[in-house]
Amino acid sequence: MTFTPRIFSGIKPSGDLHLGNYLGAIRQFVPLQDTHETIYCVVDMHAITVWQEPEDLKRRTYEIAAAYIAAGLDPKRSIIFNQSQVMEHAELSWIFNCVARMGWMARMTQFKDKAGENSENVSLGLFAYPSLMAADILLYKSTAVPVGEDQRQHLELTRDIAKKFNHDFRKQIAELGFEEDFFPITETLATGPAMRVKSLKDGSKKMSKSESTSDLATIYLLDDADAVAKKIKRATTDPEPLPSEAAGLESRPEAENLVGIYAALSNQSVDAVLAGFGGKGWGAFKPALADLAVSVLSPIANEMQRLVADRGEMDRILRDGADRARAIAAPVMADVRQIVGFIR
């Protein structure tokens, strides 16, 4: 069976958006709307696997949708919506709960990392949410997903669930008129190198939207120009000047992080950046990086603020996106109900 080239991806509204979310994900989404059908979701159902203050959840849902648009996604070309408006996500997730095996879920390293030694007290949703992630992707018969390294295991689980569903119900799928698989075996989409932004205070840790130990460690997308510049100028560095090539950044995590941010924001290679700054100190580099970051991020922050302030417009965009998403999801879900033997 030939599937429409279609991409699904989403961001969880469990913390405030930061530079890592932009460089590692959101910016990567934009060019894909030129080559694929693109569905970009705010996965608010995933967020509540751990406690969220309801008002914060609403605010962050609007902010992520606004960030998508401010970064360059066109809500007329891409489908932009929040997950909870399309309840077929939850319905298909339950069916996948009954397809997936406990052993598959137990091997998910992210659950182990998040639950830690407290696994008996975390929500069932946190344990089962990879099944919901599979439903998010397969509900639209998505052929590819742009994922980071921390999500590759979940995409493998999605592929396993699709294969098992196709195998277990192969007779019913054929009777429904499908010559081959009902669900595609979704591929990982290569979008070019995505910057893995580290904390501005500790280059060994990922920049985080929810676990920052210092207000100066994370650049948030809604930070104003002064805050962005201040955080960069106070970023932890080492006493050595910048090298002239990337190899010289080995064993210098803070230096590697700041140079990598400059390279990503300026769409250059690290070597190209160092060709201009090699031999110079942080007194020259940090102000240049601050100016660059402000020039790139301030227009995004301003547009996000404008959109978030217009709740009527944001609600219209999200409802329209949900309607268009449901137009794809509802027929798929109707077929699934028939395949598994539910009376319609």
Rank of each mutant, 00 (worst) to 15 (best):
L200W: 02
Q33C: 04
V294T: 06
K76M: 08
P146V: 05
I64Q: 12
I339H: 08
L318N: 08
E55Q: 13
A290K: 09
I328W: 03
N97D: 14
G72H: 05
L258I: 10
C98Y: 03
A70T: 05
V332C: 11
T2L: 05
L189H: 04
A134M: 13
R337G: 09
G278E: 03
A284W: 02
G321Q: 06
N302T: 14
I39Q: 06
K171C: 03
R77H: 09
R337L: 08
E175M: 11
G24A: 07
K58Q: 13
R316N: 07
S210D: 10
L265K: 08
A264P: 09
D168V: 13
V332M: 09
F183L: 05
T218V: 15
S204F: 05
A67I: 04
A217H: 08
I69T: 09
Y40V: 11
G203M: 11
D44T: 06
I80Y: 00
F3V: 03
D202Y: 13
H154L: 02
P146A: 09
S269Y: 07
R107S: 11
G312R: 12
S210M: 06
Q28F: 01
T188L: 12
T236M: 13
Q83M: 10
K164V: 12
S298P: 00
N118S: 13
L221W: 08
C41G: 02
S199A: 12
P239G: 14
N302D: 15
R107A: 12
A264N: 05
F81N: 11
T38A: 15
Y140C: 00
K141I: 02
V147D: 03
A194F: 00
A272V: 05
D238R: 10
D320C: 05
P241Y: 10
E156L: 04
D202L: 12
V197A: 08
R326S: 14
I343D: 06
G276W: 03
R196G: 07
M1L: 06
A229N: 05
K286L: 14
A135H: 07
P253W: 13
H46D: 10
Q153A: 11
